[in-house]
Design a protein around this nucleic acid. Structure first.
Lengths: 340, 340
DNA sequence: CTGAAAGCGCTTACAG
DNA sequence: CTGAAAGCGCTTACAG
């Protein structure tokens, strides 16, 4: 079980040269004779030698390791398809550029610590805040630290932020529904956050632009990703004296809840009631009718976050701390009826 | 942007003591005067000092870092709810025990390397093979290495394996369906693998025990997690001269495909055709009728994998290389009709 | 072309 | 109770 690994010293002994020479030969320095280099490389291969990155980092001041903050709250974190997909694509891009990924935690080896402490401990080259409570002091401490930081879903002045364009997404979705002839549109939105806020504002604006007014009772606050919560709220909405013809849910999971309630009431989708979601999770496209929704480009978000972060790490002076808005895509599905 | 971090030397200078003394004070050695200790701890706090783990590891021969192999193939890896949930729970448990998690990759800093090389590079304390091609030479090299290894979904002699009990799961599911009065049961299974094999065998056995024979044409090979694939296969099955009364799909996603096809053909579920899945993904329980399926306990799998691996790391001599089978749970849902 | 030496930041016997 | 010294495995000016 012991992990006995060849060191540079072992190679130097077996080759009868100094460790300096071994190091240089292995790192491709030019001032080593071809014969020596070959001998060393051969010996290293045979010994299964591989340099230890942590030690290397000690001299090089670079760990090629990125810290990823991914707090695993109830419905968030890795258990959320949205975030899991973003991480997958971030990981792929980072690997391609030669960086490893380590999760940022609150403790290691029995020591409690802040996120920032953990970063120092591991000496990350940069930090990706993928999923966190953005008002937490510890998170802010990280954002305001000396580390190169990229966040998603939330913009900071002190970091690069990659955002799915929520204003534009909600605009496209709402306009599409209006274009299908709907004027009585209800919105079960998620709990308070900047994302929720932007979508709500956008929804309002598009209604106004189209000269549409909807009653207060068409707005309900649900819980992101909770089908249960939206089932109840949908029941209330559909039992109104003047019910909506279309319900937009906070996300695709919530939309499934709306569909369940509708079907339970004997309503057909989209004939009797139209439903729309947000996110574009895979399952919602495996159903029939396919859900009308806004697809967030998780591959692009993760890819872009990694690209930006590594640029910031490698060329801090030529990488500005921008907020980057990524395009979303309207998925027309079949769950919104054309009333015209 | 420069990460100037206080070192132990800085503290020693500001306190007027040696680095040895600082190190000992910070690590709770007893032979340091109370006054000195307090002064040092205070100074360290003020300087925002935090020891660097990589350097520490150099002496301590322990990194408190676990390598996780998670190859991101098309439908696998982090984009698969099953694996993502297992990773989430593994991560939580590992964090609680004080271990970090780093993904094992194929390259870092432009160097190609094997998985084992990467482990040596990062000097992991142990390895969790969560999602990989188990026949790949590189994976076998890892399993056969000196590293403590835990795998899931596949048993090895040289490692601890945590498995969801597929034989038992398929047994429960099949028996339940038979108990509901079904005798014409089709099975759209996944592509070849030990998991697929065990489920198929179990399915056969239960049929035999119940004196049931089903025609060859009731077996179809689909693709795990592909609704598209199972849509086509279901169409074929339902168009047979003597169609099944129940179709078991390889997993819940595939089951959704079966449902789509059925509905498209004007069949109601479960009145006209019964459907069952496997996995217990969240979405399948948000639908109506709820899908009859076998729920794999992803939380338990990840938790147990982490627990076993850390035990193996910390107490190699008192941790045996077992294969651990975890219970599954039959979710009765409403997608299988009671024919009695 | 090669190697001795210093140093990265830390820990830990050992001497005082 | 405190500190000088060696060492973990590697890199890199510098001297030869």
């Amino acid at each position: 079980m012991a992990k006995k690994v060849a060191t540079i010293k072992d190679i130097s002994l077996s080759c009868g040269v100094s460790v300096s020479t071994v190091s240089k030969a292995l790192n491709g320095y030019q001032d080593i004779s071809e014969a020596t280099r070959e001998m060393i490389i051969k010996a290293a291969r045979e010994a299964g030698y591989f340099p230890e990155a942590n030690v290397r980092a000690l001299k090089m001041k670079k760990t090629y390791n990125i810290g990823v903050l991914f707090s695993t709250l109830s419905k968030h974190g890795l258990r959320n398809e949205y975030f899991a997909h973003i991480l997958a694509s971030f990981k792929e891009k980072a690997a391609k550029r030669g960086y490893d990924i380590t999760f940022i935690e609150h403790n290691i080896g029995n020591r409690k610590m802040t996120y920032l402490d953990h970063c120092r401990l591991r000496n990350f080259d940069g930090v990706f805040i993928a999923c966190a409570e953005f008002t937490e002091p510890e998170v802010l401490e990280l954002v305001n630290s000396d580390y190169p930081v990229v966040t998603i879903d939330h913009a900071f002045n002190e970091a690069i932020s990659v955002l799915s364009d929520n204003v534009e997404g909600m605009r496209q979705l709402t306009q599409y529904i209006i274009d299908q002839g709907h004027r009585k549109i209800a919105y079960i939105h998620g709990t308070k956050s900047s994302v929720t806020h932007n979508r709500l504002v956008s929804f309002h604006n598009v209604l106004k632009e189209n000269g549409i007014t909807v009653p207060e009772e068409y707005f309900a606050q649900g819980i992101y990703r909770s089908a249960e919560s939206s089932e109840k709220l949908a029941l209330h909405l559909l039992n109104l004296k003047d019910p909506p013809t279309c319900i937009i849910a906070s996300d695709d999971y919530a939309a499934l809840g709306v569909m369940n309630t509708a079907r339970r009431m004997g309503l057909k989708i989209p004939e009797d009631i139209s439903v729309a979601g947000y996110d574009g999770i895979s399952v919602a496209q495996a159903l029939e009718p396919k859900l009308t929704t806004i697809k967030q480009d998780t591959d692009k978000i993760g890819f872009e976050a990694a690209r930006q972060l590594i640029n910031l790490i490698e060329n801090p002076m030529s990488t500005s701390l921008d907020t980057i808005y990524l395009k979303v895509q309207l998925v027309k599905g079949g769950s919104v009826r054309n009333l015209r």
